[in-house]
Structure formats: structure tokens, C-alpha cells
Write a protein that binds this DNA or RNA. Structure first.
Lengths: 278, 278
DNA sequence: TATTATTACGTTAGGCGTAAAGATT
DNA sequence: AATCTTTACGCCTAACGTAATAATA
């Protein structure tokens, strides 16, 4: 049976060319290396060295043996990593959401319910979330609609209602409510990383252009120092309107009011926070 | 670093369920198995067992670890086999021929020239021989034509001339020579394993049918006890006509007279028998 | 002479088994 | 009581290093 340490020495010998160099690299004596190479040769069961009196080198089979030794060691590190990653995965709850708002409620709740677990969350496109659910690559998903699949537990989690956020002097400021068709054509400032809201806006307002800001600070500065309209939601406004010279006007279309659904494997039902009471 | 013996015990434990059973299967004491499992767990670096006072079992990660341990051991046996086969291959000369006759001369010559080598020979279709030459899967090839490739040493080796072998009473018996068109339409007894001659006959005599005999003894009996024509060659007839009531008539077509060419890697030139002197 | 591989040999670390303890069914 | 895992402990193998040998460049 192979000794993995000896295989490492064997591979080092293939690199270094002499047993002496291997011995100093591994900080062990040359007789030990000599014995190791004898063991490796014995383990392979065929001659892999050509020896003269004070010279030892790989024969043709030996070079093949080096490749194979590397393959064995690679397999061991791969196996070790796979087990380690599996173990880590057991200790993490993977959350995938279509939008940021429900995460603001869910992540603290999960952390509280599973203090020993790592919570990993990611905002990503809806098709990716559905694929990850099927492939069991995520434990909890947040989607803007119901999922019909008996292998999953689906429950409404919270609502979010989209509004426009405009200057008090804006021509639309007198409206009590607007529809996507009213605002289609206006150009908007838009945060990045707002999940599915992004594609929804582009879909419902094909004539508008969106100035996407990656950086939150820069977005804030632009909102404060321009008259460009932007979006907000009731969830955000629960903490008050952050821009004193702006008002929010809700969008009346049904698509602007979504109910996020929590999708989990059945086994997690009992551990999840209670759904929102409306 | 993993100990492969311990990994085997680990896999056995996954099968058997208790350390005691592993200990008796491996004929070692239970404390040793206990220590082995501790080593394996330490080597993987993550918990793979769930232990109670007198019960030890795999946890979820442990089951993954078993798969990985199997993968490691599989890799070791694969590697060992690959090196062994490589070593065997070094000690064998692989000969591929398009027909049996040149092998009758070549194989004894090779055995004499390389007494320490194993000679492996096979009659196979010409395209397969060419492919094996390119992929270096054979060391010596016998083909019925020249090969134009500077990476190979090609030399004419011997000739073979096809004849028909018919009863003295046969309607063709008075011919001094025949052509394929003369004999096209007659049905022939045919040995199997005559290499490319088989496809050549079918090609040149599309109206004929061939009664292929796998067994040499049965072929002989059929030739003796029927009036069906068959084939023979000058190489065979060098030892005399084996069937007293038959005669041989050479086929005049150029395709019936082939020159076998010996194709070898350049490095073997010096070791090969001298080409036939014509 | 310096470098290299290998053998001889004494020492010691570590692996194994026996015995026993502790726990469960 | 029987079975199972683990600890304690002593023995002994086998792996290591030092020293020496032999051969080469």
C-alpha cells in the first residue's frame, strides 16, 4: 500500500534529480530517502529506477509512475477539499432573493434563529433562483410570486409597493398616484442591485432611460442634487422620506405591488419566522 | 496525510456498521480500529463521526468522506495498474499484420532477435493498422503496400501470390492461369482469419459467394470432401500441395500478387531481420 | 576532493495488542 | 450477560539518523 509521504518525496525526486536534494528539501537524511524510493518501487511492483553505483534515475516506467503518483496526491487533496466544503455547507444557510428588501427582515431573523449557522445571501435573477432551488443549491429563496411545487414550503412573507420619488416641483407632483404608462418616457436614477425591480421597470417603461448608480453614496448625492426622478418603496419609506425636497407617489399598476414568497425545503418550516400579518 | 490502510478500514466500517466487525474482518484489535478512525477523522480535518458512549456512526459529512475515501483508493489501484501495464508494454513488441503469411516468418525472427520480449501479434483490418501506427499502438506493422511517412521505416518484406485450389476434374483445371473475372461467380470455401485477402476476394469477385469456415480442421475436411474451389498461395504451397486430388492455378491479376511491407519505428531498424532477397 | 547512493547499526518513536473500564441493550 | 467503544499500558517492530563504504566526476 502506498505511503503518501513517500509519494511526495518520489515526485520531488523527479523534480530535483538527486536523493540528496530531496533529503535537504524534506529535512530528512539521505538513507531515509533511499528507503522511501525503495518502498515506492516496491509498492508499484515494477522497476521504476535505473541505478548505477552512485547515481539513481527514473527509467521510462518511472516517469509514468511520477504522473500516476501526482494523480493519486491530487485525488487526495481534491477529496479532502470536497469533504471540507461539504462540512462548511452543512453549517451555512444559503439564501437567494430576487430583491433586497425582504432580506432586510429575513437575514436578522435567520441569524437569530440559527446563531451557530453561517448565513450566505445573494440577490440574483429569478431564473437562477428557480434553478438553484431545483438543484438544492439554496436553502431559502425569496421570489415575487408563488411557486407550485409540493417538495417546497411556500408562504407569503411580505409586500413591497413601488413608488416614484420626485421633486415637489415636478410636473407629476400633484398626482395622488401614477401608472407606468404615465411615467413611461421619463428618465430615472436607479440604484444597481435592486434585483428584479430593475428588469421590471425596463419592461414596463420601455421609453424611459435609467441612469444606474453602483455606489450608494453617489446615488444619494445625485438624488439630492438633481431633479431626476427615482424610485422608492413603502418598505424604504417606513423609516421616513430621506429626501426633504421630494415626495413619493405610489404606482397604481398591479405589478408595482409585489408579495414576496418565502420558499424553503420542508424540513426548515418550523425554524422560520412567522409570516407577515397583513 | 492519509494512511491508505486506515482509509480501507474506514470504508469497511461504513459497510459493516461497527468497529468490532471491522476488527475481525481485518484481524486486528478494536483499539487499533478506534485509533485508525481517529486518524482518518483527523486527516480529513472535520468531524465525520457522531459518537455516543458505546456507539459510533458516520455523520452526514462522514458519508461524503466515505465516497471520497473510495475515490482515493480507486485512484491508487488505477495508478498502480497503469504503471504495471506500461511496464508490460515496454516488454512486448506489438505486431499488427494484414495477413497471416508474413507472420509465419516474422514472429520466429522477432522471438529470436528479442528473446526477452513478449511478442504480441494480431491480424486486423488495414485501416486499423494504419490508425494504430499513427497512435503508436503497434511497434511493427505488415501491410500489402508501401507507407509514405518519414517517421517510419518501411521495407519490402516478402511476396505472396494467390492461387485457386480446385479439384483436378474442375472445369477450370486445364487453365494455366486464371483471372478474377474468370472465377467471379464460382462459390468458394474460405478460411476465416486470412486478413485482407477476405475483403479483396469479395471485392474482386462480387458475384461469388464465400463459405467461411472458422475452424481449420473443419475447413480441411470440407476441402477434402467437397468439390468446392478454395484458395491457396505460393507461400502455403512452398511446403507442397496438401490436397492430393487438387491442383493450384495462379491468379494473373496484379492484385493477386502482393508485396508485404514491414513498417517499424525508426529506432527498431537495426534489430529487424534482413528483407527478403528476391 | 566533493558529491552521491547505499549499507550497517544503534536508538527511539509510534503502532499494536492485552487488559480493563464505562456504557448500552 | 453480552456487546461495543475507548483508555491505559507495556512490548516490540520498524523508521530514523549517524557513521561508514564505495563509486563517480
Amino acid at each position: 500500500m502506498f505511503d503518501l509521504n513517500e509519494l511526495e518525496q518520489f515526485i520531488a525526486f523527479a523534480d530535483l534529480g538527486t536523493l540528496s536534494k530531496v533529503s535537504e528539501q524534506f529535512h530528512i537524511s539521505t538513507p531515509t530517502i533511499t528507503r522511501s524510493m525503495q518502498h515506492v518501487e516496491e509498492d508499484f511492483g515494477v522497476p521504476i529506477f535505473s541505478r548505477s553505483k552512485n547515481k539513481i534515475e527514473l527509467n521510462e516506467t518511472g516517469h509514468k509512475a511520477v504522473q500516476c503518483a501526482k494523480a493519486i496526491l491530487n485525488e487526495t487533496v481534491r477529496a479532502k477539499r470536497e469533504v471540507k466544503e461539504f462540512n462548511e455547507h452543512l453549517k451555512t444557510i444559503v439564501v437567494k432573493s430576487c430583491a433586497p428588501a425582504p432580506l432586510w427582515r429575513l437575514l436578522p431573523a435567520l441569524s437569530g434563529a440559527f446563531p451557530e449557522m453561517t448565513i450566505s445571501s445573494h440577490i440574483c435573477p429569478i431564473p437562477e433562483i428557480l434553478a438553484d432551488l431545483r438543484e438544492k443549491k439554496c436553502d431559502v429563496a425569496l421570489l415575487p410570486f408563488k411557486v407550485e411545487d409540493s417538495s417546497w414550503h411556500v408562504s407569503p412573507y411580505m409586500e413591497e409597493h413601488l413608488s416614484i420619488c420626485i421633486k415637489k416641483e415636478h410636473e407629476l407632483a400633484h398626482h395622488k398616484q401614477v401608472s407606468f404608462s404615465d411615467i413611461n418616457g421619463f428618465n430615472f436614477l436607479l440604484r444597481s442591485k435592486i434585483g428584479f425591480w430593475d428588469s421590471m421597470c425596463r419592461d414596463k417603461m420601455p421609453s424611459s432611460k435609467f441612469l444606474v448608480q453602483t455606489n450608494d453614496f453617489e446615488f444619494d448625492e445625485l438624488v439630492k442634487n438633481s431633479s431626476l426622478p427615482c424610485f422608492t418603496t413603502d418598505v424604504v419609506l417606513a423609516n421616513g422620506m430621506p429626501y426633504s425636497d421630494r415626495i413619493s407617489i405610489p404606482i397604481i399598476d398591479s405589478e408595482a405591488k409585489v408579495t414576496f414568497h418565502l420558499v424553503t425545503s420542508v424540513s426548515m418550516i418550523n425554524f422560520l419566522p412567522a409570516p407577515a400579518t397583513t
